[in-house]
Design a protein around this nucleic acid. Structure first.
Ligand code: FES
Ligand code: FES
Lengths: 141, 141
DNA sequence: TTAATAAAAGATTTTTTTGTCTTTTATTAT
DNA sequence: ATAATAAAAGACAAAAAAATCTTTTATTAA
């Protein structure tokens, strides 16, 4: 479903939502260590998210990454599409050129139903709200 | 979700189920053309399926691939796991070391439903039965 | 029994993804 | 101002996945 880069991106964004803020920025080193993820690779991913205004950053001493209020209102769908491109949620699971309920492939019904379940959550739940649930339910990242 | 090779494998097996039989074998060339898939790559995939007794083949003139009665009773789950390995249906969507409902990641609930719906179909529907539905509903492969 | 056929096997190549290292730029605390 | 810090950017390397080509083996129809 998601590329490795995308998995790292989601986890990093959630890490920032839970552990960082404008007053308490997190550096690549910290994030990579906390998530047990390759540091330089993560740096590239964070750069891309930053360029697309999905996360915030400042350089220099006491600099690092964090989520602004606006960033917290975005969704993981945007994060996912920033890394894996715009077709993640509407491409056929068998790789056929189009995915449609009118002209479905043999796995479409199941694939579509549950893909949409995921899509719905990622599209409608703000990152900030998701972070609250993570803290409340002590979920792992 | 599935690798390219796995998508080709699923489609090729369904193609065989619908269009071939012991008396009317299909060659790599025919299958590759019908599915619009790279020929040599498909050949490799068919070899692997054949080695694992998920499809049948004979060499020489009028040889080719087909599904035996036994092959038609197998499921796509076996095909998928033959190509993509045994963890396709039980690994965390975020790549965390374990996927469990007891200690779930933030996307687990939706992701698990996604996977299980698909998993259930692939696990419980025989390839032969699936082929009948494909013909009945004129689905694309 | 021989020539033609088609899969099996082996070896390579290409492309994509993942991961690493170095240099540059911006920021800040001293 | 200056040195230290940390992200941004660029260039590179390694690994994995996808795709191709060649040689060998088995089969069968003539
Ligand atoms: S057509 Fe294949 S998943 Fe929708
Ligand atoms: S724990 Fe992540 S999908 Fe189950």
């Amino acid at each position: 479903m998601f590329s490795q880069a995308c998995k790292y991106a989601i986890r990093a964004v959630l890490y920032l939502a839970v552990h960082a803020s404008e007053g308490k920025k997190a550096g690549v080193k910290e994030i990579a260590a906390a998530l047990d993820v390759p540091k330089y690779f993560l740096a590239k991913i964070l750069q891309q998210l930053s360029r697309n205004n999905l996360i915030s950053s400042t350089k220099g001493p006491s600099g690092g990454f964090y989520l602004s209020g606006q960033n917290l209102e975005a969704t993981l769908k945007e994060v996912v599409e920033c890394i894996d491109g715009p077709d993640v949620f509407n491409s056929c699971i068998l790789g056929l050129p189009v995915c449609s309920s009118e002209n479905p492939c043999p796995l479409h019904v199941q694939a579509f139903a549950y893909r949409e379940g995921l899509h719905y959550q990622l599209k409608h739940q703000a990152i900030g709200d998701l972070a609250k649930r993570i803290e409340r339910e002590e979920q792992k990242i």
